[in-house]
């Protein structure tokens, strides 16, 4: 799986491409660990180009969310394909993530919070 990172105002946009399975989950967790160590706390994960996600991939998202929440950060999910959305629904992961229909709106949500004075860690 390919992970592309792009720094945005108030957040980090990570675009994932390919199969997000248990194997890719380790790469993702490592990437998140590195970025979090650099002080990045607010993330947007764009899943529009993820063709497949399994419980390992979802587990790594949840583990990463737990870690960033420890530093008052957040992970917001953007652009779920129908296939990935169904897996989010089956596993009820949507109960813990904020899901946006585009990465722009997810990034904008952080900006809106910054305008409102909600402290952001980046």
């Amino acid at each position: 799986m390919e992970i592309t990172s792009l720094r945005k105002t108030n957040s980090m946009l990570l675009s994932l491409q390919g199969r997000f399975d248990a194997g890719a989950a380790d790469d993702f967790k490592e990437k998140m660990r590195t970025l979090t160590a650099q002080g990045v706390a607010c993330y947007v994960i764009d899943l529009s180009r993820v063709s497949y996600i399994d419980s390992g991939g979802l587990g790594s998202l949840v583990t990463s969310l737990r870690r960033v929440r420890e530093i008052q950060g957040d992970i917001r999910i953007a652009s779920l394909s129908d296939k990935v959305r169904k897996v989010f629904e089956l596993t009820r992961v949507y109960r813990i993530f904020d899901i946006y229909d585009s990465s722009e709106s997810a990034v904008a949500s952080y900006q809106a919070e910054a305008v409102q004075g909600v402290p952001l860690c980046i």
Partner: peptide, 10 residues
């Protein structure tokens, strides 16, 4: 939560 995800997914 990861355990619940695995159980529901499979």
């Amino acid at each position: 939560m990861e355990e619940e995800i695995a159980e529901r997914y499979h």
